[in-house]
Design a protein around this nucleic acid. Structure first.
Length: 305
RNA sequence: CGCGGGGUAGAGCAGUCCGGUAGCUUGCCAGGCUCAUAACCUGGAGGUCGUGAGGUUCAAAUCCCACCCCCGCAA
């Protein structure tokens, strides 16, 4: 089939790679290059870079709301458009242009976690499974009829990053299957709808009054990006990985209980930090980190500097 | 030219301002002791101090120059 691919971040790259093995990708739509990285240089998106290296024409409109872009899109005369974490809203004129419409790869088991950050929200909520849904796009936010679905377990070791990578691969497989098998579209259930809000910057700051379970979920969900953090003697420390323990304590939340970095949390629960990083330093395991005398037992992490 | 921190033993760091024997903690090896709450004692191995037959100097981890790499913020 002649396919237009629309995607932007790393997550979408395996999907593009997968598509070109069975189909003709006639154009790639992606977000315009943005300033990024230490030098603040304009950086093309991961999908942009991959498409260029594959010699596929790349389009980077700021919006698809104007008629001119919509005509350009329609003129490509595609059989279908595959959309994966593109980052722009598709107006009806675009949704209806390809013969088979626009097909979306969404990183959750819909209708749970519609929206921007389904991967992190699933881990943060402590879900025991996540997955990928292939759906026929309609005007709503991730409300289209479902074509295929496949689940993937979430364990205490699952991070936002590891789930992201797993679902990315899963999505790349499923989209081929969907295009090949033409499954019957099924409406999403009305029950069980939740929305995955975009991750806000201030969410990364840990509140030690939460339970160890909640904190562990959030810490793992936010790894490796944007990563959670706390303050210790005014210095910013990223808490990268942790797990809840069955222990309990009467120490104040945030207190460092021992050299294994057991930390007192809300309601006397205890969290163990496994992986952390000082500002400007490398990320270290707890064992390595504690070789320096930086953190002292009995002192505490704070939510402010 | 967005702002900033860093590269010294396997790991984590001090030393750099103010040049003068390469230090600390931990890990590792050997021996001792016989121990809970990071066990302890003694001994030992282990380093081109990111790179440059660079510059300055009697002397450079330290001062100057160029380059490479890692990371925090911000996006």
């Amino acid at each position: 089939m002649r396919i237009i691919f629309m995607g932007t971040p790393d997550f979408a790259v395996p999907v593009l790679e997968s598509l070109i093995t069975k189909h003709t990708v006639i154009a790639v739509y992606t977000q315009p290059p943005r300033p990024a990285g230490k030098g603040y240089h304009l950086t093309p998106s991961p999908v942009h870079q991959k498409a260029e290296s594959l010699g596929i024409p790349v389009y980077t409109p700021k919006s698809l709301k104007n008629e001119e872009e919509q005509k350009k899109f329609a003129a490509l005369n595609a059989d279908a458009a595959v959309v994966c974490a593109y980052g722009l809203i598709l107006p009806p004129a675009v949704l209806n242009a390809p013969q088979k419409g626009c097909i979306n790869i969404h990183a959750s088991l819909l209708p749970r976690w519609r929206g921007a950050a389904p991967v992190q929200r699933a881990v943060e909520a402590g879900d025991s499974e996540s997955g990928v849904t292939i759906m026929q796009m309609d005007i709503g936010l991730d409300t289209g009829d479902m074509l295929l679905k496949k689940s993937c377990p979430i364990t205490p070791e699952t991070t936002g990053e590891s789930l992201h990578d797993a679902l990315s691969v899963l999505g790349a497989e499923l989209i081929l299957k969907a295009l090949e098998e033409n499954p019957q579209p099924q409406p999403q259930p009305a029950q069980g709808v939740t929305y995955a809000e975009k991750i806000q910057k201030d969410e990364s700051l840990l509140d030690w009054n939460c339970s160890a379970d909640q904190l562990a979920h959030k810490i793992m969900a936010f790894y490796s990006y944007p990563a959670t953090f706390s303050f210790y003697h005014g210095e910013r420390v990223k808490i990268l990985k942790a797990h809840a323990t069955p222990l309990s304590t009467d120490q104040a939340p945030g207190t460092i209980l021992d050299s294994n970095l057991h930390i007192a949390c809300g309601n006397g629960t205890v969290l163990q930090i496994d992986f952390l990083q000082r500002a400007g330093k490398k990320a270290l395991s707890t064992a390595d980190f504690m070789q320096s005398a930086f953190l002292k037992i009995g002192e505490k992490f704070c939510a402010t500097n």
